[in-house]
């Protein structure tokens, strides 16, 4: 990823830090693993996070879900890799909430 992308706990330049607080994915997933197993797998990879999964539509073999992950400092790559590993396919990122933390060294 280039420097224009937001990654948790990564400095975007020498003085600023961007942290992801909330991210909502539109995901297409198979019926198995179940929503509970799917959300638990994501939560397991993001300690301290709150994961919420809403089923939007159900098809014969798949279901569309909205996966909302909230935490102090979320790792986008970690979450998206977990979704792919669980057999999901990310259609879009519908909502994000990021926080800009001035670098501690710069404040002093």
């Amino acid at each position: 990823m280039g420097s224009n992308y937001i990654i948790a706990d990564k400095k975007t330049d020498d003085t600023n830090m961007i942290r992801i607080k909330k991210i909502v994915f539109d995901v297409l997933k198979p019926h198995r693993p179940t929503g509970l197993e799917f959300a638990s797998a994501v939560a397991e990879k993001c300690p301290g996070s709150v994961v919420n999964l809403n089923v939007e539509a159900v098809d014969q073999n798949t279901e569309s879900v909205l996966l909302r992950v909230e935490g102090e400092s979320l790792d986008f790559d970690n979450i998206s890799n977990t979704i792919l590993e669980m057999g999901g396919s990310i259609h879009s990122v519908d909502e994000v909430e990021v926080i800009h933390l001035p670098d501690a060294g710069a404040e002093e």
Partner: peptide
């Protein structure tokens, strides 16, 4: 294969 067709993606590296 049927699941991959439904998901329209390669699932070789997923748990499936």
């Amino acid at each position: 294969r049927e699941l991959e067709q439904a998901m329209i993606t390669d699932m070789a590296e997923s748990i499936h």
